[in-house]
């Protein structure tokens, strides 16, 4: 009968599986034990741990802050269309009626959302009051200020330079219109600044990331030194390199994570605190701009960065210092 032998074979397979599972269980148990042990060691030396954590946190939060600033400025730039404007300057010699005709014409353009007329007399009065040059300005024969329209274009106009250019050309062509300008120069400056900012973040991030590697590497070096005897004994009883390395890798990972956690909390609180005042200001200017903190994604990216830097720092230090300990 073929069936019993079949069953036996299956039973054999199950037996092998359990053996493997037991071995896996032991490895997992050792990982967990090592993790616990590393945590206990970190807590047992709170001063050293705190020092490393704070230094790592600062090194991580500096580039992270800059990155967030750049990110916010870019968001601000994108947000900008809604309150950018075109200023149209009308010739001084234009009469009230001619100005009214110009206004009608501009309003007829589909690209124009709304417009505000700034009367030269009214503008001069306001200027006189605001500047305190009242008596001096009385000596002027003519009002030097031109009539001005401040135009808010339709949303899609400013995001497309050709469209904006076309609108400006149309307005300059109107009789008695001297000039029309988009107030965008500063926006372009801002954009080149954020480009620069991105480069600075990269450079600073690289330098400080290297710093974190060194800091964590150094703390691993100290840990290796203080556990020298243990390493020797473990090697004598047949511990593999992976086994010897493991606690130090966990140690580095945890320190990187701690530093990143503190940095993440600092950034979240800091940006939340600033966010309130920024919101007030931007509301004052009729903007919907809101300061963005690290958020969930940023927070976890930061944790991941700390984790990887810690692991890499530990890996480098372990590779460098474990080889100096005899026996092989």
């Amino acid at each position: 009968m073929p069936q019993p032998s079949n069953q036996t074979a299956r039973r054999g397979a199950v037996g092998a599986k359990v053996g493997l599972r037991a071995k896996m269980g032991a490895v997992i148990a050792h990982h967990r034990h090592t993790l616990e042990d590393s945590l206990i060691r970190l807590l047992r030396d709170p001063f050293q741990t705190l020092m490393t954590t704070v230094v790592v946190a600062i090194a991580l939060s500096l580039p992270a802050t800059l990155l967030l600033v750049v990110d916010n400025v870019r968001q601000f730039e994108n947000n900008f269309d809604s309150f950018s404007q075109i200023t149209v300057y009308v010739n001084n010699t234009a009469s009230q009626q001619q100005v009214a005709v110009i206004q009608e014409k501009i309003q007829s353009f589909s690209e124009v959302n709304s417009l505000v007329y700034v009367d030269p007399k009214q503008a001069l009065n306001e200027f006189t009051e605001a500047s305190g040059f009242g008596s001096a300005l009385e000596y002027l024969d003519d009002n030097p200020l031109p009539p001005v329209f401040i135009i808010e274009p339709a949303i899609d106009v400013l995001s497309l330079p050709q469209k904006a250019q076309k609108l400006i050309a149309k307005m300059v062509n109107i009789d008695l219109v001297d000039d029309a300008q988009i107030d965008m120069l500063w926006l372009q400056r801002l954009k080149s600044l954020t480009e620069l900012g991105k480069k600075v973040v990269l450079a600073l991030g690289g330098a400080l990331g290297l710093g974190v590697l060194v800091i964590i590497g150094n703390s691993i070096r100290l840990a290796i030194h203080s556990r020298r005897e243990e390493i020797i004994v473990v090697k004598l009883v047949g511990g593999t390199d992976a086994y010897v390395r493991r606690p130090f890798l966990y140690f580095g990972m945890l320190q990187g994570l701690f530093g990143a956690l503190v940095a993440g909390i600092m950034l979240t609180i800091g940006f939340w605190w600033l966010g309130g005042s920024v919101e007030n200001i931007s509301q004052l200017y009729g903007s919907h701009f809101m300061l963005r903190g690290p958020g969930f994604q940023g927070f976890f990216a930061l944790l991941g960065t700390g984790f990887l830097l810690g692991l890499a720092g530990a890996w480098l230090a372990v590779g460098k210092h474990l080889n100096h300990i005899k026996p092989r």
């Binding site: 243990e230 004994v233 090697k235 004598l236 009883v237 047949g238 511990g239 593999t240 086994y243 092989r328």
Partner: peptide, 21 residues
Amino acid sequence: NFRIPSYRRQLGVVFQDHQLL
């Protein structure tokens, strides 16, 4: 070097200074 750990696991070693942790 890679096989040293598994080789050492076949041995038991005792030292004068016992090397206890």
